[in-house]
């Protein structure tokens, strides 16, 4: 298993000018980068990040769009995978952080979490390339090649859970911008706002 903060640091070295939807890795990614092409949305509604990534990738075909999704989100919306595969945006890089639990609600297990082949699900849904990684060395070695090749690509990453038991109302907010502001900042940067 990997630590989310570590794998994001590795990714940051290869990010280039990609738009990064930090998803469930948002807290760590914001410490690395929080510019107008960083998209920390928090959790607008669980299960929707993949769709947001797809929409953004379709809208901006000349920019790489990288999403750090989660296994809990994916399982809630498996039907998005065939839609992504059908649209086949070559600029979409879909990572999931698989910690096998619902970390933000106290660490309850995701159903059958230890036995799911997420890359297999993505491949069966029509993604042309899909990978599973559990070790940072393997991920670090393969990442440059994954990002060099066209998408859509799906990469499942086994990560240590970072379980939160603090009541939601008492948690420290890590986001520096509201989700609405994040979207408006991006539109402004793209000349659409």
């Amino acid at each position: 298993m990997m630590h989310t903060a570590d794998l994001l640091k590795v990714f940051a070295q290869h990010r280039g000018d990609a738009i990064v939807i930090s998803g469930r890795g948002g807290r760590h990614w914001t410490e690395i980068s929080d510019g107008v092409t960083d998209i920390p949305l928090g959790d607008p509604a669980m299960g929707g990040h993949a769709g947001f990534g797809l929409g953004l990738a379709l809208a901006q075909p000349n920019k790489r769009v990288v999403l750090f999704d989660s296994e809990g989100d994916i399982l809630m919306s498996l039907g998005q995978l065939p839609t992504i595969a059908e649209q086949a945006p070559a600029n979409f890089y879909h990572f999931i952080l698989d910690n096998e639990v619902y970390a933000t609600t106290g660490g309850q297990p995701v159903p059958n979490s230890k036995n799911i082949d997420y890359a297999g699900i993505a491949r069966s849904s029509g993604y042309p390339r899909a990978f599973n990684f559990a070790e940072l060395d393997d991920f670090s070695r393969e990442l440059p090649g994954i990002l060099r090749a066209p998408g859509p690509v799906f990469v499942a990453l086994k990560v240590f859970p970072e379980v939160e038991n603090t009541p939601i109302g008492q948690r420290v907010r890590w986001r520096k911008r509201s989700a609405d502001k994040v979207v408006q900042d991006l539109r402004g940067a793209l000349g659409a706002g």
Partner: peptide
Amino acid sequence: VGVTREGHGCSIAAGLYAGG
């Protein structure tokens, strides 16, 4: 963009809008 469940369409639409 065809979806398999209507709720999926909301985040796709949001992403399209965010991208202009």
